[in-house]
Amino acid sequence: MSGPSAVAGVDGSEQSVLAARWAAREADLRGLPLHLLLVNDDPARAPHCESALADATRACHEVAPELTVTAEITFGHPIEELVHISAHAPLLVVGSRGRGGFLDAVLGSVSSAVATHGECPVVVVRNPADTGPVVVGVDNSRGSRFALAFAFDAAARRATGLVAVQALPDAYFHPGPFPHPDRDELRDSADRHLAEQLAGWSEQYPDVPVSRAATNEHPVAALREAAEGAQLLVVGHRGRGGFTGMLLGSVASGVLHHSPCPVAVVRMDRTS
């Protein structure tokens, strides 16, 4: 692969073809070429690899006829090879489940591991849609600032709105049987704080309509609910990437397993 290309991991499964189609649209939106990578970890599958790549390439050109698509078959461990290529890619896309090394009951073992250890933003594709907002989780961390940058850019490229969700499960500002004297103040304060975090980004992306949601639900539940009907859900990841990086946070991991739409896991900048 020469030059910066978005990368999609494929394996011949239906989920990986969906991921390749999503990656083709995203690469086209970004003005990037797309590189399809099939990592074969079973010599018995070798005769099927070429046809699997050809099917994925055709699917990409159905989405973006003018897109430059390259394809590669390599032998090795899917997780290791995909994480390795993520060090040089602007974006890595995988399906939520797959065949062989990609197979798992809920979330593919490869998808989960690549989202945990990938050194670039990783998108795990499930139930892709072409309409709806981009949803982003905000939590005051440095990681969420990188997630906001990715989310605003994604919303701008799609000419759609952005929903920013900050879950404060200990805030207790929802109505309940025992009135809290500061409930309104808590809600107003949470909304103001969320607005402050978004202010600079809204100035940078004035054409992106922004909705704010400050809630005392559990973060995974709040993000899953907000992502119903969304095109993309974006979460931050504090790990350092590579195999020495931290494990994926519980919120990001929960969202990957339960999100109704594609999830982008965005870690801190490589230089952080």
Rank of each mutant, 00 (worst) to 15 (best):
P262L: 01
A190N: 04
L37E: 10
V235I: 11
P169E: 02
H193W: 01
P260Y: 00
R142W: 03
T70C: 06
A190Y: 10
N140R: 14
H180L: 11
R183C: 12
L168A: 00
V114I: 10
E66R: 11
D139H: 12
V234C: 01
N127Q: 13
A20L: 10
D188P: 01
L186R: 15
S253Y: 04
R240T: 14
A87R: 14
F150Y: 14
A46M: 03
L103N: 13
H88P: 00
T70F: 10
P262C: 05
R157T: 03
V122S: 08
V94Y: 07
Y205F: 15
W22G: 11
E81A: 15
F146S: 11
L186D: 10
R187Y: 11
S202L: 00
H258M: 04
P219G: 13
F150I: 03
V235Y: 04
R145G: 12
S5T: 08
I85G: 00
L36C: 08
S86F: 10
N127I: 00
V94K: 05
R58F: 02
A113H: 13
A190G: 09
S51W: 01
G137Y: 03
P169D: 07
R126I: 00
V125H: 05
R238Y: 04
L38W: 10
A20F: 13
R145K: 13
L223H: 06
R126T: 13
A222E: 01
T116C: 08
G132W: 00
V94G: 08
N40L: 07
D269M: 05
D139L: 11
M246S: 14
S189A: 15
I73K: 12
L91C: 08
A44C: 00
H48V: 07
V138N: 04
A159E: 13
E14K: 12
L82V: 06
D130Y: 03
R187T: 07
H88A: 14
F150R: 02
D191M: 14
E119C: 14
T74D: 12
H88M: 11
T74A: 14
V138S: 10
V94I: 12
L53T: 05
H84P: 01
H35P: 04
A156G: 08
G9C: 03
A115P: 02
Q231C: 10
G101R: 12
D104Y: 05
D153R: 11
H117D: 02
M246H: 15
H180V: 13
Y205N: 05
A8E: 06
E50F: 00
D139P: 15
A54H: 10
H193V: 08
E185K: 13
V110M: 10
R126D: 00
P181T: 07
Y205Q: 00
D41I: 05
R187K: 13
T116M: 05
E196K: 09
L38K: 02
A151E: 07
P179C: 09
G245N: 12
R25S: 14
L194S: 11
L67R: 01
R158Y: 11
